[in-house]
Structure formats: structure tokens, C-alpha cells
């Protein structure tokens, strides 16, 4: 049965599938069974009020948060909570494999302050993918150029603006050649005038066919860039569909209210 569902995931072209992800913290149910399928090139935006579980859900997809229940399937390999909790070599290996295939961009950038921009980008390729440092550096410089930061390669994060730091963080995630990119409110920690440069980079990535899952409050951006929008409420999918439909004609009262609030 397990095997069959794996094969199906490959056949139907899903890059990533989350099945009934649940997360409880003590007695609080943060996620109450969220499922999602992303095909190659899909850009899925997750919206919802704070506390709706959207960031927790995203963090469950690469097991930074260990879900209480449910599975994540990527490249035909199914991962579940029991694997992540096991201390065995094989499950640790499997967990690292999952994380390698899923890139993550954080709200607070999380660049390593003791390394330059280029070193931040090279770290994963050199240490995890075992690329030779020279090759990794030249690839890092290319990636930094793509996010418009070739001149800042040898700067430390503390010498960069928030927008620049986030673009380095995007380059760092791309350096692992992930199948899916997760963005956890990538512009929420930025000054308003720096939001545009990060969204522009993300728009380019969407255009080149990257598979992306984006938790965001930037509704207009989400509408323009994503192929699918999911509205989460109280740990469940309340509404989902093409972003324009969702925004133009929200069915549920909650989404109507949420959108009205975001407009002001």
C-alpha cells in the first residue's frame, strides 16, 4: 500500500505531497490534518491570520517541526513523524535527505554571522553535497549575481541590509538545488522599502518554473505570482483555488473578513 502510493506520487508528477499533517503542542491542536500536493513548477501561497498554523505547516514539510501525524512525500520517498523521532542512523540519514531536497528561506534570514555572503551560500554545497570548495565558490558567486549581489559576496551579514541578507538566504537555499523552495514570511521582517527587491527575486524564481510554497501576508504578490492559493484557518484548509478566484470571490465569511482586513 505504502509502495503503491509512492509510485503514484511519482507517476502523477507531484514534487511534494503532504498528507494529513497534524501538529499538537501539549493540548493545543495547531494543525488538524492539512494535505497539499505540489506539481513541478507550482507556486502555492499559504495565507491566513496569525495563529492559523501556516508557518507551522511549512516547518512540518522539512521536519524542522516534527508533525504529530501525517506524511510528507518527496521524490517518491515518504517521511513520517516516527522516522524523525528515531535516533537510528538510517532515519537520521533519511531526514537529512529530505531537508537537502527542500530549500527553506526564513523570516529572520538566519544567515550565519561568522561567514561572508559567499561562505553562507557555499556552506551547504561544500559540507553536505561535498562539492570542491573552488567549484562551490564559483557557483555561489553565480547565485549571488542572480539575486543581484555579486558585489557583496565578501561582506558579512552584519554589513548588509535586511533585503540583501534575505537575497543571500535565497541564494543559500538555491545552492542546494532543492526540488521545492519553502518561504516562511520572507518579507515580514523587512523595512517596507526593502520588500520589493526580495519579491522581485522570488517572482523571477517563479517564472523560471521553480516549485515554491510561500507563507506570506503580501496578498497582491501572492495573487500575481502563485498558481494556487490556500487559506488556512485554525489548523485546517478553509478554502483553496486559483488566487484570483479566491480573492475576487471568497466563499467563506472568514476569508472575506481576512481579505478585508489585509486591504486596510
Amino acid at each position: 500500500m505504502q509502495m503503491n502510493s509512492n509510485i503514484k506520487a511519482l507517476d502523477t508528477g507531484f514534487v511534494l505531497r503532504a498528507d494529513k499533517i497534524e501538529k499538537h503542542f501539549a493540548n493545543i491542536e495547531v494543525l488538524r490534518g492539512i494535505s497539499l500536493e505540489a506539481k513541478r513548477g507550482d507556486v502555492i501561497s499559504l495565507i491566513g491570520a496569525s495563529g492559523s498554523g501556516k508557518s507551522t505547516f511549512l516547518r512540518c514539510l522539512n521536519f524542522l517541526e516534527i508533525p504529530t501525524g501525517g506524511t510528507v512525500t518527496i521524490r517518491g520517498e515518504t517521511h513520517q513523524a516516527s522516522d524523525a523521532l528515531s535516533r537510528s542512523r538510517a532515519s537520521k540519514q533519511k531526514l537529512r535527505q529530505l531537508r537537502r531536497e527542500v530549500g527553506m528561506v526564513f523570516q529572520s534570514f538566519n544567515l550565519w554571522p561568522h561567514m561572508t555572503a559567499a561562505e553562507n551560500v557555499m556552506e551547504g554545497p561544500v559540507r553536505v553535497l561535498k562539492e570542491p570548495p573552488k567549484a562551490a565558490r564559483s557557483r555561489a558567486l553565480d547565485l549571488l549575481a542572480r539575486v543581484g549581489l555579486s558585489e557583496r559576496a565578501d561582506y558579512r551579514p552584519s554589513q548588509l541590509s535586511g533585503g540583501q541578507q534575505q537575497r543571500v538566504a535565497i541564494a543559500r537555499a538555491l545552492a542546494m538545488n532543492p526540488d521545492v523552495l519553502l518561504f516562511d514570511e520572507p518579507t515580514s521582517a523587512l523595512d517596507p522599502e526593502l520588500v520589493g527587491e526580495v519579491l522581485a527575486v522570488m517572482t523571477d524564481l517563479a517564472k523560471e518554473g521553480r516549485t515554491m510554497l510561500i507563507v506570506t501576508h503580501e496578498i497582491a504578490f501572492a495573487r500575481d505570482v502563485s498558481s494556487k492559493m490556500i487559506f488556512l484557518r485554525k489548523g485546517l484548509v478553509e478554502e483553496e483555488g486559483p488566487p484570483r478566484d479566491l480573492i475576487a470571490s471568497p466563499k467563506s465569511e472568514e476569508l472575506q473578513r481576512f481579505l478585508a482586513r489585509m486591504r486596510h
Binding site: L64, Q97, M104, W112, V128, A169, R172
Partner: peptide
């Protein structure tokens, strides 16, 4: 977390 996220042991 960022280090975990790139799959570092």
C-alpha cells in the same frame, strides 16, 4: 535551524 534546513548532520 538554518543549518538543519540544508541537511547538515
Amino acid at each position: 535551524e538554518a543549518a538543519h534546513a540544508v541537511g547538515m548532520p
